[in-house]
Design a protein around this nucleic acid. Sequence first.
DNA 1: TATGCTGTATTAATACTATAATACACATAG
DNA 2: CTATGTGTATTATAGTATTAATACAGCATA
Lengths: 129, 129
Amino acid sequence: MTEQHISLEIAPSSGVPIYRQIIEQVRRMVASKQLKPGAELPSVRSVAQSLAVNPMTISKAYSLLEAEGVLQRQRGKGMIVSSNLPESQSEDQRLHLLQPAIEQIITEARQLEIGRETLLKEIKARYKE
Amino acid sequence: MTEQHISLEIAPSSGVPIYRQIIEQVRRMVASKQLKPGAELPSVRSVAQSLAVNPMTISKAYSLLEAEGVLQRQRGKGMIVSSNLPESQSEDQRLHLLQPAIEQIITEARQLEIGRETLLKEIKARYKE
DNA sequence: TATGCTGTATTAATACTATAATACACATAG
DNA sequence: CTATGTGTATTATAGTATTAATACAGCATA
């Protein structure tokens, strides 16, 4: 079964549609090779159950990821990460996927008049690796 | 007229409803006193025009902010920042409003396997104050 | 008083998001 | 073959988001 045990999460009150939150998470995990080409994704029904959402919502996310080329469908089995993906993502390329979040947090910090050093200090404190 | 010249922005492709983006920005500017109690907000129609959006969408945001107590309506004139707001927001309190964005960017960085130092360096480079 | 500015209400239409309950074709393990 | 597991399609329903075109009441001022 090769359980990858990846965990998908949603922020119910964020305003971002559930299927989009799923898509973005899978995209990031594929880009970082936490999900390698050929890896199986958890089934639509299991994700739906653990997130307490409708299976069709997860199916929609998977379908769009398939259309995007990130996933491949295996009839009767499940979804796997595409085997023919653009070459290994360098850290610079992955950083590109993080840009929107960086722009967002800087905008919010500016509007809150929270200076750069305070922001950096806060992230340093919260980001345990 | 006391033009405050505050600028509201939206990210059309973010999935977050426009009226929620407006609400969050105003909340932050009020918390940081960039919008002080009594300050006039730009009119529904002017914001709608500059964002190329329907006036009712902005009106909805303003109405919800009024219900929340952040804004007060002046019939026939416009919206102003409430005069009886909870006392001055300390930086700690403002930092609280930033927590969701911090959680979000750390989650994304982890999924992209971008380490703390890389993240900090990138923010430092982008945040010019 | 007339003009022009506020926010808002109304009605209608459209689109998107999500849920629920079924059903189907396919694959695989027993 | 049977049972169970894939993803997906269908139909119906609901709530939300957004737009459009009007209209109205209140305020300010020339």
